[in-house]
Amino acid sequence: MNTLENNVASPTTPGEQHFPPFVASDDIVALADERITHYPESKLSAVLPLIHIVQHKHGFVSKEAITWIAEKLEIEPMKVVSVVTFYPGFRQSAPGKFHYRVCRTLSCAMAGSYELMDQICEITNIDRSQLSHHHPIVVSPCGNYSVEFAECLASCGTAPVCLVNDDFHENIKPENAQDLINKYQP
């Protein structure tokens, strides 16, 4: 694949089974249109919220989604690519059905978040050596789980902490990793 295609490519992952390809559903269009009204000066400012909407609904930001956002906001698609690739929180490939974001900032790191990550990976058979800067998440072979380190999730007092999709979990000792997996069964 050529270098430029890489900017918008979505390498296949086992997580894809849970995320159908992007379509601009009525649902998404309505959410986007509403968001755009928040920025009367320049639609460009709506690029970040629109990417969030897409990722939330579709799990990741595909080339088709980038094109749709650009057209919706009447901006160059490269502007969308810049924002998507700037934030590690935006993904360009499908995560697992349950995406685990383990905090690795100081308090959590000291309270064992790296061990927690190792435990989660061991239980779900995730091989983190596949990580790259451009694609910072790894998906389990079954496609149900994926992991990512996150920076401070603003709950340092209850370290280590972890986000699973939109649920927040505190005080997760590494030895309790299995419980955290058990809570999320496909």
């Binding site: 430029l4 160059e76 490269m78």
Partner: peptide
């Protein structure tokens, strides 16, 4: 013709363009 932009961040920052808008 604003086809160029930066992708990535920090030390990884790269000048590039969208493959359909060279």
């Amino acid at each position: 013709d604003a086809v160029l932009g930066f992708s990535e961040r920090g030390t990884h920052t790269t000048v590039t363009c969208h493959p359909d808008r060279r």
